[in-house]
Structures are given as structure tokens and as C-alpha cells.
Design a protein around this nucleic acid. Structure first.
Length: 670
DNA sequence: CTCAGCCTTCTTTTT
DNA sequence: GAAGGCTGAG
């Protein structure tokens, strides 16, 4: 009885107050909230309250009585979606239950689970990540005769992937992006792609690209599905539209056919994902695609001081391909950004950590500070230094939590339970066993092909003696797994760990305690799930990082420094931002320097980095860099620093004490 | 032929 | 720290 009352209470929206839209938003933003019916393009500069606008629009629609299930919100990360929902909830005072929100891949998965049968795929497919996809391709390449000096699986994957996401055929992708490769490779690559497609389909596997491609195919080929979905989604909101690709733009277009209430938000100056086929022309041609598009512009920056903004504006104006625009700051004037050349990476790390200590003494919290870099490994020296000085931090970038080898090992056991056809997961498990290698695992996989797990575990004498022993060992784990409830993920993992993996980790890795701790965290994560299917989808589609754990342990667990790649820092802001390793070749990246299009993207990346800062911006670069091929080399400051007017920043000269003699000795003669 | 182990090499950005 | 190449053992 009491339970029932409680339920009624929580289901009922209790609106205690009316949201004061006009009071809480500026004119530019308010117009979007009130008038965004039909196709709308919101061009929102950095720090102009883009997320705020989306959140208020969402709240407004819900307040107007639009049902949550009729709204589709597509974001760049699932984290962003969660945050927006949470903020909307706080505004409204109730939970918008049934709202469709998440990344394109996430929503694609949800829809394909329901409709993929139309495309004669099994709805119990598993999702594979990039690494899995590359491993499958690697094996396909290896098994083909005469493919000795062939591009690596990595390259093949990029070509295929780019072709799918850009909607261009392999030939075009070759001439536009991989012109340095021999065109004779085109046919073999197409052939490999066909085998790859078949292998995935036979094993009920979808890769990231399939989640988008098949979704679009579904909408194209089945008008009734398109009709149903486009009727359903009365309002579609898309965040970060500048980073959508060809397929995503088409999906949006199909979904909006009935109601045409499609609101896209973006900033062409912040488009930084063209390497995975994001296409700025999506945002540029949006008004042509949808007639009667209303264009809104958010040009007031609420984030950064005029000094920081001026530097950013001065940098981005060097890009030819852009909507010219002027962002103006409403924040009080502050300090000019500061440029700090250091002798080497170690001194750079030392300076930053020292400065951070000073800032915290001036009563700035660590969580108001971030260090941003172009590539994951740029932060190596800094991490060492932070550990030395016991400054707690979280690093975002590089390997993600669920991509770590030990987690993939454990999850692979769950994957074969869910989908016994998953040859990638099987390969992984089999190769963990002593005595089973590349060839042995292939033999076993072909022997168990198309069998259910309860049949597989009865296989006993089919293999040659050498394999038989290893297989029998594996059965000791597989048999109890088969006997356990599939959706009791905790129990399944318990078997894997106790029967096998704890021992395996201890014997094979020196950092086994850390790895086991990660697995412990995984087990905690399983408590949120009562469905193996959902659990497995989420582990491959979620973008959480291993480092959501603070190192070293902080006195106050809420207060830590952020280290992040610039890509990961999109949409975020801090009072103080350090952008490091600003040397030519590191940032901009060496491979981008000869191509104008790519150097512009690097510049946008620099723009994104600088506009994360609210109050203080420090730009640092080491004069000596370590390169794999040349050892220690002198480096030039980044092109992006060279092209800036020197008046935009103040230069800070460090003393040279901390350069050790032995560093100099390793220098090559230049 | 097959596997394991040691050594070298290389790291852009990611759903 | 992880992947690929090489070598020796079974």
C-alpha cells in the first residue's frame, strides 16, 4: 500500500515554480527557447551558453507538455547527455522519464536492437570496439595469400571506416586521403572489406560504424520504420553538430521528415573530428537542406576574459575556411595569457606543478585547474612530477577503462556466454590459455562454430593431444559458467576470477594489484545491471576513463587536477588552463603541417584549448624535445605561437638552473 | 608446424 | 605499455 503511494508521488510532475526563462537567459538565448519551431541552426561560439540554451529549450518543451518519449536529444558523448538531463531535471523539479538521449551510436544501438531483423541480422548481436575490429582484420589479412607487404590492419580499418562515415567509395577515399598508397591496393582492400563484412555478419558482430550505417540503411530501405520513428520524434535536438559526419547528418534528416522540428547546435570554429569523417559542410549547408531554416547566433561569451578571447580570436582568424564571426566577452578585463618557454619537458613539468602549488596557496582549488595537451603521451613527465609532489589528478585521454587488456579479457568470457558465435571474444579467451596460440585457437573456433554453449562444453576428444589438455583446462571455467544464470553478471565474473583470472593476473603482470582493483571496480559497476545484453552494450559504448580514480590519493576526494587531451576537454571550462607542448611538430602535429586543411583543424584545436580558460591561460613549450627517431632535438615554438601578435601575451622567462648537464650531452649535432 | 618468450619499436585526436 | 619481429624449444 505505502509502496503504491510512493510510486504515485514520484511519477507525478511537481512543478513548484515557473522557470523564469527571460530572466535567466540573455536575448540571444531566449529567442531560441521561444522560437525554435521548425528547422533551426544555432551557431554558438565558445562559452556562449550553448549547453545552457539546449537545457532550457528541453525544459521548455517538457513544460509545454511535449512528452519525453517524443523528444530525441543527440549529444557527442553519453556523459554530456547524462549531464544535460540532470540539469534539465534540476530546472523542472521532476525527472523526464522516457526521454531519448545519448550519442548517435547509443541511440543507433537502441533502435537496431528493435529493427535490425528487417536487415536480416540477428537482434542479439554483440558490439565490437576498434581494437577488436582491427584484430579481426589482421587475421583476415594474414590468412590471405600474397599479402605479405600489405598495409597494416590499422590503415585498412581507417580507410574502410572513413569510406563508410563519409559516404564516399574506397576509390575516392584513396585519392583524397591516402594518395601516398599504391592504387593497386584498392581492389585487395575492397576484397578484404567484403570478407570482413561477412565475418562480422556470420558471428553476429557490429562495429561502431555498423551502428550508424545500418541505422541509416534501415531508414532508407524501410519507409514504415522511417515513418514510425519520424512520427514519434516530434522534437530533435543535436548538440555539437559541427562534428557530425555524412551518415549522421542523413540519419537526422530522415528522422525529421514528419515534424521537421530539428534544432542543431554547433560552432564551425570548434570542429575537431574530421579524422573520423566529421564534415563541417553539414553545418554550413544545413540551411540549404532544410528550407525555412531559422538561424540563431550566440555571440556573447560568458566564460573568458577579453584578453583570453582576443588571443583565441586572433589565432582562429588565420583560418580561411570558416564563418567569420566575432565573439565578445562580457567578463571584466584580466591578465594577459602568459607564454613560458622551458628548457625541456622536465622543466615544463616542474614549472607547471610549481605554479599549481602556488595557485592552490592563493586559494584556488585544484578542480579549477586543467592541463591540456595534443596527445596523450605529452603528459608523461608531468604525471611523474605530480606524483612526486603528491598533487592529486585525473587524466582523461588515452586508454579507456573498458579498453584495458585485463578488463577486455574478463568481459570476453561474458561475451561468449551472451553470443557463443563471437569469434573475437573466443580468440581472446583461447589465447589466454597456455598451449593455445594463433593456429590452435582457429582450430577450436572452427570446431565450435554455430554451436550453443551447452553443446560446446561437451566437446572432449576432437582436438590433437597438445590442444586437448589446454581445452580441458578451459572447460573447468566454461562448465560452471554455462550452469549459471546468464543475467547474474556478478556470479559469472566470480567464477571467471576464482577459477582462472586472479591467478593469471598474478602470474603475468607485475602490477596485478592495480589490475585486480580495476576488475573490482567492474564488479561494482555490474550492480547496476540485471541484463547481460545491456551490460555488454554499455561497456563498449561508454566512454568512461580508467582514471576516474584519483592518483595519488587526495586528502579531499572532490578536489583534484584535470589532465586531458584537448579532444576530451571539449565543452568544459576551468579558471586556469595550461596548454603544454606547444612546439612545431607536436602541436600542430607533424603529419598535419603540409596540408592546409589539416593545419586548420589543428588551429581549431588550439582555439578550443585556449577558450577553455576563464581567467588564467598559460601556454608552455619545451625548447628541447625527445623524439623517438632522433633522440633529443631542438624544437621550434608552435606555428600557432609564431603567428600570434606578441602583444597578446606576456612572456615569462624561467631561470635555467634546472637543466642538467647530461641532457645537453645527448644532443645531436645540429 | 606451433607456441612462448625476449627484444625492439613506436605512440594524434575517438564513438 | 603494447604490438610486431625474431629465435629457440617442443
Amino acid at each position: 500500500m505505502s509502496k503504491k503511494i510512493y510510486k504515485l508521488k514520484s511519477d507525478k510532475p511537481k512543478i513548484n515554480f515557473k522557470i523564469d526563462y527571460a530572466g535567466e537567459l540573455n536575448d540571444e538565448q531566449y529567442k531560441v527557447i521561444k522560437n525554435a519551431e521548425g528547422p533551426c541552426l544555432v551557431l554558438a561560439g565558445a562559452g556562449s551558453g550553448k549547453t545552457r540554451t539546449l537545457v532550457y529549450r528541453l525544459a521548455y518543451l517538457l513544460e509545454q507538455g511535449v512528452k519525453p518519449k517524443n523528444i530525441l536529444l543527440m549529444t557527442f558523448t553519453n556523459k554530456a547527455a547524462r549531464e544535460m538531463i540532470w540539469r534539465t531535471e534540476k530546472l523542472l523539479g521532476f525527472k523526464p522519464k522516457g526521454l531519448w538521449a545519448g550519442t548517435f551510436h547509443h541511440i543507433g544501438n537502441r533502435i537496431l536492437r528493435q529493427y535490425i531483423k528487417h536487415l536480416s541480422y540477428n537482434s542479439n548481436y554483440s558490439i565490437i570496439d576498434n581494437e577488436d575490429a582491427k584484430n579481426l582484420l589482421k587475421e583476415i589479412i594474414r590468412n590471405k595469400k600474397g599479402y605479405k607487404n600489405f598495409p597494416k590492419a590499422n590503415v585498412i580499418k581507417n580507410i574502410i571506416s572513413f569510406s563508410i562515415n563519409s559516404g564516399k567509395n574506397i576509390e575516392t577515399v584513396f585519392t583524397e586521403k591516402f594518395s601516398y598508397l599504391d592504387t593497386e591496393l584498392i581492389e585487395p582492400i575492397k576484397n578484404i572489406n567484403n570478407i570482413y563484412k561477412n565475418r562480422k555478419k556470420e558471428a553476429d558482430l557490429l562495429d561502431y560504424d555498423d551502428l550508424l550505417f545500418l541505422w541509416l540503411k534501415l531508414l532508407k530501405k524501410f519507409p514504415d520504420v522511417k515513418k514510425y520513428l519520424s512520427n514519434k520524434f516530434q522534437y530533435i535536438l543535436v548538440d555539437e553538430y559541427q562534428d557530425t559526419n555524412h551518415i549522421q547528418a542523413n540519419i537526422v534528416e530522415y528522422l525529421a521528415t514528419t515534424h521537421k522540428n530539428i534544432l542543431v547546435v554547433g560552432d564551425d570554429a570548434q570542429s575537431i573530428y574530421s579524422f573520423r569523417a566529421a564534415d563541417i559542410s553539414n553545418i554550413l549547408t544545413f540551411p540549404k537542406k532544410f528550407t525555412d531554416t531559422q538561424i540563431f547566433k550566440l555571440k556573447t561569451n560568458y566564460r573568458s576574459t577579453p584578453e583570453i578571447l582576443e588571443l583565441a580570436n586572433n589565432s582562429i582568424k588565420n583560418n580561411i575556411n570558416q564563418f567569420p564571426k566575432k565573439l565578445s566577452s562580457v567578463i571584466d578585463s584580466g591578465e594577459k595569457p602568459i607564454l613560458i618557454p622551458t628548457q625541456n619537458n622536465e622543466q615544463q613539468a616542474e614549472f607547471i606543478s610549481q605554479k599549481i602549488i602556488e595557485l592552490t596557496k592563493e586559494r584556488y582549488d585544484l578542480k579549477d585547474i586543467a592541463v591540456l595537451f595534443r596527445a596523450d603521451f605529452h603528459a608523461l613527465e608531468l604525471e611523474l612530477e605530480l606524483n612526486k609532489k603528491s598533487i592529486p589528478y585525473i587524466k582523461r585521454g588515452g586508454i579507456k577503462f573498458f579498453e584495458q587488456a585485463h578488463l577486455k579479457d574478463v568481459i570476453s568470457f561474458l561475451k561468449i556466454i551472451y553470443n557463443p558465435k563471437d569469434e573475437i571474444a573466443w580468440t581472446r579467451i583461447l589465447n589466454l590459455q597456455k598451449g593455445i596460440g594463433r593456429i590452435g585457437s582457429q582450430k577450436i573456433i572452427s570446431a565450435i562454430k554455430n554451436l550453443e554453449l551447452n553443446k560446446i562444453i561437451t566437446i572432449k576428444n576432437q582436438f590433437p593431444a597438445s590442444l586437448k589438455k589446454s581445452w580441458q583446462e578451459l572447460l573447468k571455467i566454461l562448465i560452471p559458467l554455462e550452469e549459471t544464470d546468464k543475467n547474474n553478471i556478478g556470479a559469472l565474473l566470480d567464477i571467471v576470477l576464482k577459477q582462472f583470472y586472479i591467478n593469471f593476473v598474478n602470474l603475468n603482470f607485475e602490477n596485478s594489484p592495480k589490475r585486480l582493483e580495476d576488475i573490482e571496480q567492474l564488479i561494482n559497476f555490474t550492480h547496476n545491471y540485471d541484463s547481460l545484453k545491456k551490460f555488454l552494450s554499455d561497456t563498449t559504448l561508454t566512454e568512461d576513463f580508467q582514471a576516474e580514480r584519483v592518483t595519488p590519493t587526495a586528502a579531499n576526494p572532490e578536489d583534484y587536477l584535470i589532465l586531458s587531451t584537448i579532444h576530451q576537454a571539449k565543452g568544459l571550462e576551468w579558471k586556469t588552463v595550461f596548454v603544454i607542448n606547444l612546439t612545431s611538430g607536436q602541436f600542430p602535429h607533424a603529419k598535419s603541417i603540409e596540408f592546409e586543411k589539416e593545419i586548420e583543424e589543428e588551429r581549431r584545436l588550439f582555439y578550443v584549448a585556449c577558450t577553455r580558460a576563464k581567467k588564467f591561460l598559460y601556454l608552455t613549450y619545451p625548447l628541447i624535445n625527445y623524439s623517438q627517431t632522433y633522440g633529443f632535438i631542438f624544437s621550434k615554438p608552435s606555428e600557432f605561437l609564431q603567428e600570434l601578435d606578441g602583444n597578446l601575451y606576456s612572456e615569462w622567462q624561467l631561470e635555467n638552473d634546472s637543466v642538467s648537464e647530461d641532457t645537453i650531452e645527448y644532443l645531436p649535432e645540429v
